[in-house]
Amino acid sequence: MRNVLTLADKELRSYFSSPIAYVIIGLFALLFGYFYYAYLYIFIRSSAEMMQGGGRAPNINQQMIASVLQNSAVIILFVMPMITMRTYSEEKRSGTIELLLTSPVTDVQIILGKFFGAMGLYVAMLAVTVLYIAILFWFGNPEWRPIAAGYLGLLLMGGCFISVGLLISSLTKNQIVAGILTFTVFLMLWIINWIGESSGPTTREILNYLSITEHFNDFARGVIDTKHLIYYLSFITFGLFLTAKSVDSERWRG
């Protein structure tokens, strides 16, 4: 555990001692802010219309926050390759991987260190957006529980992206290649169920199940379903397991 913390700490420091962390957090905050503003605007207009019509005020959780969180899932998909692409490839290129692999730590500890380091940056990214949501509490009274569920979903989904990103980064020395590949795979995992629309019910079920973002929809609505929890957790575990295999086979090939 101490080793994992040491490595995670090092990863996190290396993000923040280079411009990467600031660029990513800034970019994410900007895009999140845009969606936040857009959906808030729509929400205010529609609630004003509904109030005029004598109806009840719409639910801010369902009408606005869920949509913002769903859209931020897409931003994360674009931003995440920038976080993970250098994790292994940079160590391989600069030769620092030799230090890690000859230190008294196991491969799994190294991988977990990198995973939690990247998660740390991701949490920092999400933390900024919590400020936006906090403003809603200032002027209105949204439910906090669905929001918490939404953030839990974001964390788990991000974890999946990170585990895939680590795997791809461990396959190449070139971080640009790693970045592009990661982005392509993320995109595939997002849109994989689109072709399901025109296919049979079984295929559609399977493709829907594979799509990372599809599983997030319930979280965004504030529902914590064990089906999705299991999907995300097993996805993360499997990704990290494959990374361990990749690192190990790299050793054998030299």
């Binding site: 420091r13 280079s18 600069s94 890690l100």
Partner: peptide
Amino acid sequence: IGYLPETPPLYPDMTVREYLDFVARLKG
């Protein structure tokens, strides 16, 4: 074992002190 590879495994973003501190922790 202490090992110096052919290319010293340094992290360019760390200062010498930070780096040695990290390695010390890593090596237990």
